Computed example of a mutant assay.
Amino acid sequence: MQLETQTLLMEPIAETDWPLFKALHTIPAVIEKCFDAPSDDELEKKFHARLQAWTPESGAWLTLVIKEKSSGGKVGITGFFVDQGIAEMGYLLMPEFYGKGYGTESLHAVIHWAEEKLGLNLFRAVVTEGNVASERVLEKCGFRLQKKIPEAYEIGGELYADHVYQRAS
Rank of each mutant, 00 (worst) to 15 (best):
H108E: 09
V65G: 04
K67P: 03
F21I: 14
K74I: 07
K117V: 10
P28S: 09
H108G: 06
G142L: 14
P38G: 01
W54F: 13
P12M: 11
K117Q: 02
A60K: 11
K147I: 12
T55P: 00
G90I: 14
V30H: 01
R167G: 12
V65T: 08
Y153M: 13
S169E: 08
A37G: 04
T7D: 10
P12E: 08
L43N: 04
A133M: 04
H48L: 06
L3Q: 02
F143G: 13
F35I: 02
L8N: 02
G76S: 13
A125Y: 00
L51R: 02
Y91H: 05
F97C: 14
A125K: 00
L9R: 06
E158T: 15
T5S: 10
F47T: 08
D17K: 01
S134I: 09
E151G: 07
I27F: 02
E154T: 12
L138C: 07
A37Y: 05
G99L: 11
V137I: 12
D17I: 03
G157P: 00
Y153V: 15
E151I: 05
T128I: 15
E32I: 06
T104Q: 08
S106I: 07
E11V: 14
A114Q: 06
D83L: 13
T16R: 03
Y160I: 12
E135M: 10
E32P: 00
I31A: 04
L107T: 08
V82M: 11
A23R: 00
E154H: 07
W18A: 06
T7N: 08
K69G: 14
G157M: 11
G157W: 13
Q6S: 12
H112L: 12
P56I: 15
L122W: 01
Q146E: 14
P28M: 13
E139M: 10
T128K: 02
E105N: 05
L145E: 12
G76I: 12
K117C: 04
F21L: 07
K46I: 03
D41W: 11
M89Q: 03
